[in-house]
Amino acid sequence: MLAALFHILIFPGLLFLMAYSLFFDFVDRKIYARLQNRTGPRWYQPLADFLKLLGKETIIPDHAAKKIFTFLPIVSMAAIAAAYLYIPLFLPESLYPFDGDLIVVLYLLTIPTVCFFLAGWFSTSVFATIGAVRTLTQLFSYEVPLFMALLAPALLADTWSLSGITAYYSQHPFYLLLNIPAFLVAIIACQGKLDRVPFDLSEAETELASGTFVEYSGRYYAIFRLAIDCELVVVSSLIAAVYLPMHSDSLLLGIVIYVLETLLILFILALIRTIMARIRIEQMVVLCWKYLTPIALLQIIANLLLKGVL
């Protein structure tokens, strides 16, 4: 019981996730800055931002639905932290593995996006509403290719559990190369999931102020920001677990491998963020449905055929 609480709340659960996400945010901003030939933020910058927001006055707009408005940041944070528990991080198995945890993780990761939509919707500000509608449009375009791309390797491994995928691919490491198209699709689609350039349409600072979060301030905005950072960690861990399942039985080595893998994925994500500009919403829908979905579909068909052959 105590051990379970320790795992869930401290390591590798909530507290570790928060600390690692602040570090991740720093690395992300630093890479972004260095690629733009800037010095970039100091290492404690995300922590300072978080503390400052915690101490600021919290304003709730008169027209907003107060209960939901204050509830949403916590729900999204909780969903993300729950998803983190089911991903194998340092050891070949996650904390609570069961058959089908891949699907559960994917759906838990949808909850924050829905929360962002509701947050914008219930702020009843024009900017926030437009941002909210865009969040939903985005959800409908990237979700399908992202899910298909993440399920393709699982199909080849003939299991719906993340630990099963790890076990299968550590026996046949070369089969990982077959999943490269799906990996690329997932990397592009998860930029949409994470609201990052080129798909940061719902936040679009120049046109929508800050989109969905326009009315959020102080504590609630701090939790939302933390949730977004944690989502970045969880999604990179998920991609690492599905496409680069390299784990070792010793905890220490496992941690090193985990950090290196996730930083590699973060580097790719930051690179995309730097070299791209924001695209329009209909361009995003076209990109996702016309190009990413067919590639992911082809990958699934190929994996199904291969499974018969291999």
């Binding site: 901003r29 800055a33 800037r38 010095t39 970039g40 933020p41 100091r42 910058q45 300072a48 931002d49 304003i59 900017f127 600072e205 120049t206 929508l208 102020a209 800050s210 979060f213 326009v214 009315e215 959020y216 301030s217 905005y221």
Partner: peptide, 14 residues
């Protein structure tokens, strides 16, 4: 300005 922690925000709330 980011090296000093300054960020430009789009909304007065932040």
């Amino acid at each position: 300005l980011e090296r000093l922690g300054m960020l430009q925000q789009g909304t007065p709330r932040h």
